[in-house]
Amino acid sequence: MFARNNQGGRLILDVRPGDGDDAWRYRLAIRGEKGGRNRPIVDEERVERNGTVILERPDPLDEADRERLTQTHLEQIAANQDFRALADYFAKVQYFHLVPQIIRDPARVSSSPSDPFGADFIAQMNAVPTRRRNAWFDRMERALRSAVPEFQSLRLEVDTAGRPHLIAGYKNWRGQPARQSEADFSDGTLRLIGLLWSLISAPANGGVLLLEEPELSLNSAIVRTLPTVLATAQRDRTLLQAVVTTHAPELLDDEGVQPTEVLVLRVTPDGSTADILAGIAEVQGELAAELPISDVVNGLIAPHDLAGLIAVGQGKRR
C-alpha cells in the first residue's frame, strides 16, 4: 500500500535470528506471478550462515524450470539440509490469536491444521496423549480457578459424534457444580484457556510465541499479571521468546518491562515504522524520569484529535 520506490510489487523478508552459535540470515522476496495466474513466486531466496552464502536463488535450475519458483527451499526437507537449523527455527514459531466465535462454532471457517484462530484448538488438545494432557489440564485448572470466579474444573469430553468438547464445572448453590461446554464460555474464559494452553504446550526446547493482543476480553487485573505469567513460562523454557502486540497500558507498565523491549509501531505517510522505545530520541527525557511506559508510548502514537470520532453520532439538530 505504501510502496514508495519500485519494489516490483515484491514482499521482502529479511530475518536475522540469533539462535545458537551461528548467525543466520534468511532473505525471501515474493512477487505475484505474471500472466494472470498471480501465484506467489520466489523472486529471491538467500541463506547466509556466519556471512557465507549457502543458498542463492533463482539459480540456473530455476531459470530452466520456472515452476520450481513456486516453492521455497526452506519448506522442502530435501532442499534445506544445509540450513536445517534455520528451518527448524521457523517451524517452532507459533502464532496465536484465538477467536472465541470460531471455537464455539468451528463450522464457520474451513479448518486448516494448526489454525491460529482456534478452529481445531480443542482437537489439538484431544490429540495430546492422555496422561500428558491430564497433567496439563490440572495446571490449567489451577490457573483458571484463581482467575475465573466460581470456576472449579476443566475436562475434555468426546461426544457421541466423536467431537471433543471442553467441559467446565462452576460452583453454584447446588451440591453439584454446573456444567458448561465451550459454547457457553465467555470470550475472556475461552481466550484465557487458549493462552494458558499455548504456554503450557509450548515446546520445551524453545521457539517463538507470537501473541496477538492477549489482553482482549480479560479483566484488567488479569492483564496486569500477564507479563509475569509469560516470564514464569520462560523461566522453564529458557529459549522461548514471546512477541506480544498490545494496546494495554497494564502490560506496558509492568515493572519488568524495559524500554529496550518495547517496539513502537507508528504510522507515517511513508508507511509504518517500528522503533525500539529506548532508542527514540524525543522521549529520552521522559524515560530518564521513569514516567510510566504506557504514557510515554501513548504520547508517541495516540491520535491527537478525536473530535471527528465523537461527532459521528451527531445529527443535524445543532
Binding site: 524525543e282 529520552q284 527525557g285 521522559e286 530518564a288 524520569a289 521513569e290 514516567l291
Partner: peptide
C-alpha cells in the same frame, strides 16, 4: 516529580 526530571529535555 518525574515530570520535573523529564523537563530536562522538553
Amino acid at each position: 516529580p518525574k515530570y520535573n526530571v523529564a523537563s530536562a529535555q522538553f
